[in-house]
Amino acid sequence: MNKYILIDHTADIGIDVFGASLQELFVNAAFALFDIITDLSKTEDKIAYKISVSGIDREQLLVSWLSELLYLHDVKNLLFKDFCIEGITDNQLNATVWGEAFREDKHVIKTEIKAVTYHCLSIIQEDHHWKARVIFDI
């Protein structure tokens, strides 16, 4: 099964993300974010970061998680490739993420993402199938 698919949104870009668990859903959403930003085949796991975010519910937690990664990308010019979620509830997430710093001679930036929006945000669970929709502002 696909980790995610792109959905067309006139001005912005959206994703439908899939996972067999809430954990996998969040991992795949993070993967999608950086897969849109860069060519991940050229990115290596050189630096690890510990991340801890919270939210009032699962949906906001997803936005907080992706926004945290985007913030690190913007401020420290980091590209992340691998994500390990060590603990997740509806309101709290702890993770370790791996990636490396952007280098002009090695990496490409396909799309600059400005922000993770709350627009059309949803997380749906049907048995072991989780699906989320997120729209990015670009």
Binding site: A11, D12, H119, C120, I135
Partner: peptide, 9 residues
């Protein structure tokens, strides 16, 4: 006008 997030653009 086009489809934005929340408010239209």
């Amino acid at each position: 006008i086009h489809w934005g997030y929340g408010f239209p653009i």
